[in-house]
Every structure is written in C-alpha cells, then in structure tokens.
Simulated assay, not measured.
Amino acid sequence: MSQQTEEGPQHPPRAGDRRGNDRRRVERRAPVPPWRRPWALVAYGVVGTLALVLLLNGLGGDDDPAPRDETLVERPAEGTTQVDPTDPRVAAAGPEDAYGTAGFERLVVEGEAAVGKTVRTELFCATPQNFTIVSGHRAPASVTTLIQGGQVPAAVCKWGPSGEPRREDLLLLVPPAQADEFAAAPVVNDNFVERRRVVAEVEWVGRSETLALRTGAVFLRMIQR
C-alpha cells in the first residue's frame, strides 16, 4: 500500500522584504537659508529696535532738553532800574494808620493805588543788611535813589506785634541818612528772637520785582505811640 503525502497549497515566494533598507534610509534636508539663521533673526530685532527709537525721537519735536540742575537761580535782569512816577494825589495825601494785620491787608488789596503812600505802623526788624536788587524793572524814586552797586540797605521785618493773628514779612529799606535813627530803636524779645521795635512812618512800596518780588517799604522817621 503506497503512502500518499498530502501537500498543502503552494505560495509564490515573496517579492521582497517590506522592512528593507528603503524605510531606514535617512532623509536628507536642504540647508537653512542665511536669512532664517539665528544670527540673522537677532540682527532683524536690533535693526527694528533702532528704527523704532529713531521714529519716536523724530516725533518728539525740537523741545530743548530740561536742565539737569533743577535748583532755581535768581539772575538780575539786564538793564537799569527805571523810576516809576508817583501819583501826585498819593504824594499830597497825609500819613494814615496801617497797624497790624488789618492795615497790611488793606494796603495789599489797594494794589498799585497804595504805592507811595505814607503810613504809620509798628514793625519788629532784624539788623539791616545789603540786599541785591533785580535791575531792569520800574521802581519808585525812593527805592532807586538807595541803589548802590546793585544793592540796597534793608532790614527784614515782621508787620505788627506777636499777638496778631498773621504776621507778614516786610523788607524795610533804610536810607543811610536815617540809619542812626533806626539803630536807636529799642531791642526787644519777639517770640524768642531779638528784634528792634520800630514804630515809624514808612513809604509803602508793595510787592516789587526790583526787590525780587518781596513786599517792601522805605523807612522815613520814628514816631511816638
């Protein structure tokens, strides 16, 4: 009895292995162009920043730069001090009382109309010194005649006694001819500060640009009160 071998269906041989070298082949890429390299991107940022700064500076206008030193410096104006003519009606009027805070405020409210008035008042003054004036402005003749070398002799005073609700500062110009009379005023203790008590007639000057915007008056004579 002969043996029979059963063979299964025959399959054709595979054409090739799908896992061949084609899948393992390294993909080759083209080199990065120069304009996309890191150093080129950095250069673009620098150029853009410079262009923005130049644009902002151009829009800023031609204003002068602010000075580094913000300290206010007073400089005398160029030119000479001009004499401000006195109103004849003011010169002809007699002296009037202007004691204390009320008298000071009344003169301030009158403004230019009060310049040149002779008033009686009580002042408490420090020792006279030489104060530098600001030239190039108008001032009464009583002020311009006292200017020597760009300075005037004057004392810083308080208007009214210490009991006043508000004491204003006054620059009292002291003519050389009245210096001895002013020096004879008694020295008193005024709020723990030694000042001369001056009860006098003064010529009201008011707030003057020549006196660096200080409120001033000119000492005329001592009076009894």
Results as ranks from 00 to 15, higher is better:
Met1Phe: 02
Glu6Val: 12
Glu6Trp: 15
Glu6Arg: 08
Gly8Asp: 08
Gly8His: 13
Pro9Glu: 07
Pro12Met: 14
Gly20Asn: 15
Gly20Ile: 12
Asn21Arg: 14
Asp22Thr: 11
Asp22Met: 01
Arg23Asp: 14
Val26Asp: 15
Glu27Val: 15
Pro31Tyr: 01
Pro31Trp: 01
Pro33Thr: 04
Pro33Lys: 02
Arg37Trp: 15
Trp39Phe: 07
Leu41Pro: 01
Leu41Asn: 04
Val42Thr: 14
Val47Thr: 07
Gly48Leu: 08
Thr49Trp: 03
Gly58Tyr: 10
Pro65Phe: 09
Ala66His: 10
Arg68Asp: 15
Thr71Lys: 10
Gln82Cys: 08
Asp84Arg: 04
Pro88Trp: 02
Arg89His: 01
Arg89Met: 13
Ala92Gly: 12
Ala92Glu: 07
Thr101Ala: 01
Ala102Gly: 05
Leu107Phe: 04
Val109Gln: 06
Glu110Ala: 01
Glu112Ala: 01
Glu112Cys: 07
Glu112His: 14
Val115Cys: 01
Thr118Trp: 01
Thr121His: 07
Leu123Arg: 06
Thr127Ile: 14
Asn130Gln: 13
Phe131Tyr: 10
Phe131Glu: 00
Ile133Gly: 00
Ile133Gln: 03
Gly136Cys: 04
His137Gln: 15
Pro140Val: 04
Ala141Asp: 07
Ala141Met: 14
Ser142Asp: 11
Ser142Cys: 07
Val143Cys: 01
Ile147Asp: 13
Ile147Phe: 05
Val152Pro: 01
Val152Arg: 00
Ala154Pro: 06
Lys158Ser: 03
Pro161Gln: 14
Pro161His: 12
Glu164Lys: 15
Glu164Pro: 01
Glu168Met: 12
Glu168Phe: 02
Pro176Thr: 09
Val187His: 04
Val193Lys: 09
Glu194Arg: 13
Glu203Pro: 02
Trp204Leu: 05
Val205Asn: 00
Arg207Asn: 10
Arg207Pro: 01
Ser208Thr: 14
Glu209Thr: 05
Thr210Cys: 08
Leu211Asp: 04
Arg214Ile: 05
Arg221Asn: 07
Ile223Lys: 09
Arg225His: 12
